[in-house]
C-alpha cells in the first residue's frame, strides 16, 4: 500500500478485534524511535474511534491520518517523543 507518509513500520492487525488493535499499536510504538511513523492496518471498524481515543489520551503519539477503504482501516501514528 502506498501512502503519503514515510512509514517506518507496518502493523497488521487484520482480523483482530478490540482491544487487540490498540494493545498491539501501543506495543509497536514502544519499539519505535521518536519521529518514526507506524502504519496500522485493521479490519475492526471500531478501530477508527478507538485509535483516535487512544492517541488523544496517550502522551508521545500523534495520529496523523486515518484512511477507510472498503473494509480496511489504515491508521498513521507518529511517535513524537
Amino acid at each position: 500500500m502506498s501512502s503519503q507518509y514515510d512509514t517506518t513500520e507496518t502493523l497488521d492487525v487484520k482480523g483482530q478485534s478490540c482491544p487487540m488493535p490498540i494493545v498491539k499499536t501501543k506495543q509497536a510504538i514502544d519499539d519505535l524511535e521518536a519521529g518514526d511513523i507506524l502504519e496500522v492496518v485493521a479490519t475492526d471498524s471500531g478501530s477508527i474511534s478507538d485509535i483516535q481515543g487512544w492517541a488523544d489520551g496517550t502522551n508521545g503519539v500523534e495520529l496523523l491520518d486515518q484512511v477507510e477503504d472498503s473494509d480496511l482501516y489504515t491508521h498513521y501514528v507518529e511517535k513524537t517523543e
Binding site: 478490540c18 482491544p19 490498540i22 494493545v23 499499536t25 501501543k26 487512544w54 489520551g57 496517550t58
Partner: peptide, 11 residues
C-alpha cells in the same frame, strides 16, 4: 481483562 489491557496501552 479488556479494560485493563487497554488502559495499560494508554500508559
Amino acid at each position: 481483562l479488556i479494560l485493563g489491557s487497554t488502559a495499560a496501552a494508554f500508559g
